[in-house]
Write a protein that binds this DNA or RNA. Structure first.
Lengths: 233, 233
DNA sequence: TTGTGTCAACTAACATGTTAGATGAAGTAA
DNA sequence: TTACTTCATCTAACATGTTAGTTGACACAA
C-alpha cells in the first residue's frame, strides 16, 4: 500500500486558531474526500514538510483523528488511513439512524410553525434542483433539511455529533454511483417526513425518517464487492 | 476556584500500554467521580510531578479530555475541569435516550432466546439486590441490563458511544440523593422493557425504554438549584 | 522451499527547550 | 474611586532532542 500524496492536502488558509486544529481539519478533509485513500500510510514527517511545521501539531492532529477512527496508529510503528469495512459502515448507519429518527420524532412533537415553513421552503427548493439536475446544490439542500429537523431538538452539537458518529458512512457515500431516479425518490421521502411533522404524528415521522435513512445503507451495501481494495477483509 | 487535588488521582497501575492513555484514564476517572470538581483548575505540571512524567503524555491526555468536553482548555492560559450546565445535561440525556431507545427497539425485533434468558436472569438478580439494599451491585446489574440490550445491535462500540455522548449525565448522576422506592420502580420499568422485548413488540419496547431513561433526567433537573456551585451560569 | 533468528532502519512515544499569548496585580491619570 | 496602561508571571502551544519498540529484509538452518 503506497503512502498518501501530501500534495493533495488543502492549504492551512485559516489564519487564526491553533496549528494543530488547522492540520486536523486539513487531514480530515483529505481523508473524508478519499484523497487520502483507505489503507494508505501517512508519514508524519511528510505532513510536517508539507506545512513547514514541527511534529507536535501534526501528532496532535493525527491523535485526534485516531480517536475518531479515521486513522489507525500502530504504536512505535506507523500511521495509516483506516480502511473501510462494511461492519463499521453498518455500525455508523445504525447510530446515525438512531439520532435521525429521534430528531424527527422530536420535531413532530415540538415543531414551531416557523420550522414547518422552513421545511416547506426547503422542499420547494429541492424540487427545483431535481428538475435542473443540480446534484451539488441538491446535496446541500438535503443536508439543510435534516439540520432544520435537528435544530428543533435544541441540542447545539447535534449536527456535529451525527457527523462524528458516522464518518465511515460519509466516506463510503462518495463511492456511490448516481442511481437513476434516486433524487426524485429522496424528495418524495422528505415530503413524507414533512407531512408527518406537519400533522404532529410522531410515529409516522419516525418511520418515514427510518425508511429514508435506510435507503442510504441499502445503496452502500454493494460497495464492498465493487471496491474490495478500499475495504478490509 | 481552587486547583484540583492531584493526590486524588488514582495510580497508573496498568503496567502496559501508552503513558498518555493511562494518564487519560486516571484523570478521566477523577473527573467522573467528581474528585476533580467542576470548575477547578488543572495544572499540567502538578500532574507531571504526581506521576513523574514529562508534559507530553499529560498534554495528550488533557487534549483528549478536551474533545470530550470534560475539560476546558483556554489557549496559552489555563486548563480546568468543565462545569456542568443543565443545558449540557439535557443535551446528553437527549442523545442517550435516542440510542437507548433505538437499541431497545432493535432488541425487540432481533432478540435471540438467549438474550431473553440473560435479561430474565439479570432481573431476578435485580430483585434480590433490591431486597438486600445492595445499591452498588444493583447499579452494576442495571448497567449490565442495558448493555445486554445494546449487544443485540452488534454495534461493538455501542456502550462506549453511549458513555462518550453523555459524560455530563454520568457526572451529575453522582450528585443524586437516593430517592425512596426508586430502585423498586426501576426494576418495574426494566420488567416492562423485558416483557415488550419478549413478545417482540418494538413500539412497546421503545416507549418503555423512553419512560425509563426519562426518569433519570427528571431526577437530575432539580440539581442545578441544589448545587449551583457546580453549574455554570 | 520454508521456517527461524538477527539486525538495521524507521517510527511513534516521550522528554525537554523555547515562544507567544493570556492574566492579573500594581501603578497612574482623571 | 475608577478606568486605563504597564509589566511581570504563568501557561499552553510549538520546536526539537532522545528513546524504545516494531518491522521487514536477509542470512541461515531444516
Amino acid at each position: 500500500m503506497p503512502d498518501v500524496d501530501v500534495t493533495k492536502l488543502p492549504a492551512l488558509d485559516d489564519l487564526s486558531g491553533l496549528l494543530a486544529d488547522r492540520v486536523y481539519c486539513a487531514v480530515k478533509s483529505a481523508i473524508m474526500a478519499l484523497d487520502f485513500p483507505p489503507g494508505a500510510i501517512i508519514r508524519k514527517s511528510d505532513i510536517c514538510d508539507r506545512f513547514g511545521l514541527s511534529r507536535s501539531p501534526v501528532s496532535d492532529a493525527l491523535a485526534k483523528l485516531s480517536t475518531e477512527g479515521l486513522v489507525d496508529i500502530v504504536p512505535q510503528s506507523s500511521t495509516r488511513v483506516s480502511r473501510l469495512s462494511m461492519a463499521s459502515v453498518r455500525e455508523d448507519a445504525f447510530l446515525r439512524e438512531a439520532l435521525e429518527v429521534a430528531a424527527a420524532r422530536h420535531a413532530a412533537l415540538h415543531r414551531s410553525d416557523e420550522t414547518v415553513a422552513r421545511l416547506v421552503r426547503n422542499i420547494e427548493m429541492q424540487k427545483l434542483l431535481v428538475k435542473d439536475l443540480d446534484k451539488e446544490d441538491f446535496f446541500k439542500t438535503d443536508i439543510a433539511f435534516h439540520e432544520t429537523i435537528f435544530a428543533t431538538t435544541k441540542v447545539s452539537r447535534f449536527p456535529a455529533t451525527v457527523r462524528a458518529l458516522s464518518p465511515n458512512v460519509d466516506r463510503a457515500r462518495l463511492l456511490l454511483v448516481p442511481e437513476p431516479g434516486r433524487t426524485q425518490d429522496s424528495v418524495q421521502e422528505h415530503i413524507e417526513i414533512l407531512e408527518a411533522i406537519k400533522r404532529k404524528d410522531e410515529d409516522a415521522a419516525q418511520s418515514a425518517m427510518r425508511r429514508h435513512v435506510r435507503q442510504l445503507l441499502r445503496r452502500l451495501e454493494p460497495l464492498e464487492a465493487a471496491r474490495p481494495d478500499l475495504f478490509s477483509q
